[in-house]
């Protein structure tokens, strides 16, 4: 209880550093979610509605990648962007951009897999309807998307949740640098390492409040769309 009070007082105090950390967290999670969904949902729809050779292999592959430990994803991205690595000349290590790259590696397989399992249920029925109405391929895909929009919203929220809660990859490639790449999870890890356990817990409560707000906004958006 004391932790919740501390969290609320932190929020109302509008501590500049805390606001800055929340800002970086939202920026990172927004772009990770956006990129993962823009690539993952179309791929998932394609995988769910059509049958082609190698489909099962792809499904197994994305299923396997869903279990990729965040630290391993972080390590791979780190090795790519390190000074002497293949992309080292870009000088992008320890930036928010490279944190987004690492997160996309983790989240895209999740989005593809979840989208596929959502779409699979009614894709063939919808495709037939679309065919009967003489719709093209693009319109069929749009129909499938809009018919499944509630389920797909939870796919998007899952992607966001995974992004906002992730710590292993972002601390490795982001470096948890104050004022630059520190996000809520790495700040929590830092406070834990400092021995400020109750402050760390208060930060955790704030992270939950943020997630709660995002969920409410998302639910509202879909509802408005319905009317």
């Amino acid at each position: 209880m004391a932790n919740i009070t501390e969290a609320l007082s932190l929020l109302t105090e509008m501590d500049t550093e805390l606001l800055q950390i929340i800002g970086v967290t939202l920026r990172m999670s927004f772009f990770s979610t956006l990129i993962s969904c823009l690539t993952g949902i179309p791929s998932g729809v394609l995988l769910g509605k059509s049958s082609f050779k190698g489909k099962r292999t792809i499904k197994k592959l994305t299923g396997t990648l869903m279990g990729l430990p965040p630290v391993v994803a972080g390590l791979i991205v780190y090795m790519l962007f390190t000074k002497h690595g293949p992309l080292g000349s870009l000088g992008m290590l320890f930036t928010v951009e490279v944190m987004v790259v690492a997160q996309c590696m983790l989240i895209i397989p999740v989005v593809i897999n979840l989208t596929e399992s959502v779409v699979r249920i009614n894709a063939s029925r919808l495709s037939e309807t679309a065919k009967g109405l003489g719709m093209g391929k693009a319109k069929t895909a749009l129909l499938i998307l809009s018919e499944n929009k509630h389920s797909l919203l939870s796919v998007v929220l899952t992607a966001f949740g995974r992004s906002v809660a992730e710590v292993g990859a972002v601390s490795l490639v982001g470096g948890n640098i104050q004022w630059k790449t520190r996000v809520m999870t790495t700040a929590i890890m830092l406070e834990t390492n400092k021995g400020n356990f109750s402050f760390a817990l208060a930060l955790g409560v704030i992270l939950l409040i943020i997630s709660f707000a995002v969920n409410i906004i998302a639910a509202m958006l879909v509802k408005e769309d319905k009317q």
Binding site: S171, G175, N176, I177, Q178, W179, K180, R182, T186, A187, L190, N193
Partner: peptide
Amino acid sequence: WYISAGQG
């Protein structure tokens, strides 16, 4: 120039 890393 002062990079506070908060890590080990």
